[in-house]
């Protein structure tokens, strides 16, 4: 037991078996002077005063010199001042400045987790407008909205799979394939597409799993799992095929601009 060690005089002053790494020489409890702590308090009180005054700056600027600043600036400044205050509390009152650095790491990691939490929520919220716009169209068999718009500006009405097929056929018409150099007629391009489409399909189908296909699925677009006829996009924009439950009401658009 360690107790016996202490009872005998330690002959080797260089090496202390109880504390082989000399940890006891670390300075731990840093004592701040009361003057220093008081200064920190007054800095905190000053920033509190500042944040209250600044919170009215926006309306004051509008009234007195007719300058309108973007409405998120207020929130930004208030959060910036709060962060400064929090930093003072953490560093000096909570002792992160002179204390165990690992505690600071723990706190920084917590802030990282917090940032992830808020960040991903913001990613969702701030971009939901695009999704609503997309979802607002009728849903067609094949699982897409009414169509897509390509970066080139060209748009296509119908399922995204049919759109991809259409673009491939147009590419084949222009460029042809290694065996059939283009330009090709539309029929020729469709024929090449057919060849590729059926290539190895029979074996492929035989190995596809049917697991879970019998499970009753609810809440989905009717007909979503009925394979669409290729190229048959005639009913894509037909409102009669749209499920009214899946259309977003027009007034549900989120306000993107916090006031």
């Amino acid at each position: 037991m360690a107790h016996d060690h202490a009872a005998q005089p330690d002959a080797d002053q260089e090496f202390n078996p109880v504390d082989p790494h000399g940890h006891h020489e670390r300075i731990h409890h840093h004592v701040y002077s009361w003057q220093f702590l008081t200064v920190v308090l007054f800095i905190l009180l000053f920033f509190t005063f500042l944040t209250i005054v600044v919170s009215d700056a926006e309306s004051w600027l509008v009234k007195s010199i007719a300058i309108t600043i973007p409405d998120y600036v207020n929130a930004l400044i208030a959060m910036f001042i709060a962060t400064i205050k929090a930093t003072f509390v953490l560093l000096f009152f909570m002792g992160l400045r002179r204390g165990n650095p690992m505690n600071g790491m723990i706190f920084l990691f917590t802030l990282f987790a917090f940032a992830m939490f808020l960040g991903f929520t913001a990613l969702d919220l701030l971009n939901r407008g695009h999704v609503y716009e997309y979802k607002a169209h009728s849903i067609v068999a094949g699982g897409t909205g009414v169509g897509i718009t390509l970066p080139s500006g060209a748009s296509f009405q119908g399922p995204i799979t049919a759109s991809a097929r259409e673009r491939e056929i147009e590419r084949l018409m222009a460029e042809g394939s290694p065996d059939h150099p283009g330009p090709l007629s539309r029929e020729g391009a469709e024929h090449i597409w057919e060849l590729h489409f059926h290539e190895g399909h029979e074996e492929h189908h035989a190995t596809l799993s049917t697991a879970n296909q019998h499970i009753r699925r609810t809440g989905l677009t009717p007909g979503l799992f009925i394979p669409a006829e290729h190229g048959d996009v005639s009913h894509a924009a037909d409102p009669e095929h749209a499920d009214p439950e899946h259309a977003e009401p027009a007034n549900d658009q989120p306000a993107a601009n916090p006031h």
Binding site: T51, N74, A78, A82, V89
Partner: peptide, 13 residues
């Protein structure tokens, strides 16, 4: 620390 953030969020913005 929590109140430092709650105060501006609730009262000032």
């Amino acid at each position: 620390l929590i109140w430092i953030f709650l105060f501006p969020l609730l009262y000032l913005i």
